[in-house]
Nucleic acid binder design. Structure first.
Length: 260
DNA sequence: AATATTGACAACCGCGAGACA
DNA sequence: CTGTCTCGCGGTTGTCAATAT
């Protein structure tokens, strides 16, 4: 009992999209909106696989795409986020408005990898290529995952090890130096009132977002799901869910900022 | 000028997760 | 509970243009 193919391969075009195909896809989505990619090609009169339509729309045709060269700020943000998230391109893309995961992935592979190598850093681990040399972590910002009992369960770990995410292994020391300024520690006493896992991290965001919860006076709670770029609100249940496994991070307020 | 190599990026493929019947 | 379907993600490949030989 096999899985049915996502489309009728015998009657679908492949390869580069023509202008006419683009126009058809744009016109259809403008009229009917995104959704049901499987049936879209037929409805739009396209001889394409639904997956192909989705990719074309998301990576190339969407009106909110920025296009053009990456700025130095974007470069640095990508490097920083990659250091924290690994190859989670969709999450990284969520932090860069107008950029797609595919675009960032390509850009990483063609530009940033070399940039890091030229800085003497391993693009995979962000550690010095020659080994041995360690950052002075005390003088650099840190990502600290503060755990509760909930954190004894690994976060974002997969069997095949493809994930580049942050994981917490109960057998390991609770304070891990993950390099690139990452470390994991036990809960801060001052945040006892909060039962969620919390992350202290350097802010890469210009703005602080809701939801908020009981926080120490010098911190503001930010939903990690939202902040890391989950676009669909339903992916985030932080506000309504008392689930102890919800991961949040706190970031220190910047100068001039105050909690609303 | 012809050919080979390299770089950039669009597109494809396979897989996993979640929804649903 | 199980199987199927759809969507989305990350890795890989294909193609074309630019550059080097």
């Amino acid at each position: 009992m096999g899985r049915s193919p996502c489309c009728e391969k015998a009657h679908t075009n492949k390869g580069a999209w023509t202008k006419e195909e683009d126009q058809r896809l744009i016109a259809y989505i403008k009229a009917h909106g995104e959704g049901c990619w499987r049936t879209l090609p037929k409805a739009a009169g396209l001889l394409r696989c639904g997956k192909s339509c989705r990719l074309r729309w998301i990576n190339y045709l969407r009106p909110d795409l920025k296009r053009g060269n990456f700025t130095e700020e974007e470069d640095e943000l990508i490097i920083k986020l990659h250091g924290m998230l690994g190859n989670k391109w969709s999450l990284i893309a969520g932090r860069l408005p107008g950029r797609t995961d595919n675009e960032i992935k390509n850009y990483w592979n063609t530009h940033i990898k070399r940039k890091l190598i030229s800085r003497g850093l391993d693009p995979l681990t962000h550690r010095p290529l020659n080994g041995g040399i360690q950052f002075n972590t005390s003088s650099r910002p840190q990502l600290v995952i503060m755990t509760t009992e909930a954190a004894s369960k690994p976060i974002d770990s997969t069997e095949d090890g493809r994930s580049g995410g942050i994981s917490i292994n109960e057998d390991e020391d609770r304070r891990l130096d993950l390099n690139l300024d990452l470390s994991i520690s036990l809960p801060h006493p001052s945040s006892k009132s909060s039962t969620s896992s919390e992350v202290l991290m350097p802010s890469t965001a210009a703005e602080a977002t809701t939801p908020t919860s009981v926080v120490p006076p010098y911190k503001q709670t930010i939903c990690l799901c939202y902040h890391l770029g989950f676009r669909r609100s339903e992916s985030c249940s932080c506000q309504t869910n008392s689930n102890q496994h919800v991961l949040r991070y706190y970031r220190p307020l910047e100068e001039g900022q105050h909690i609303k």
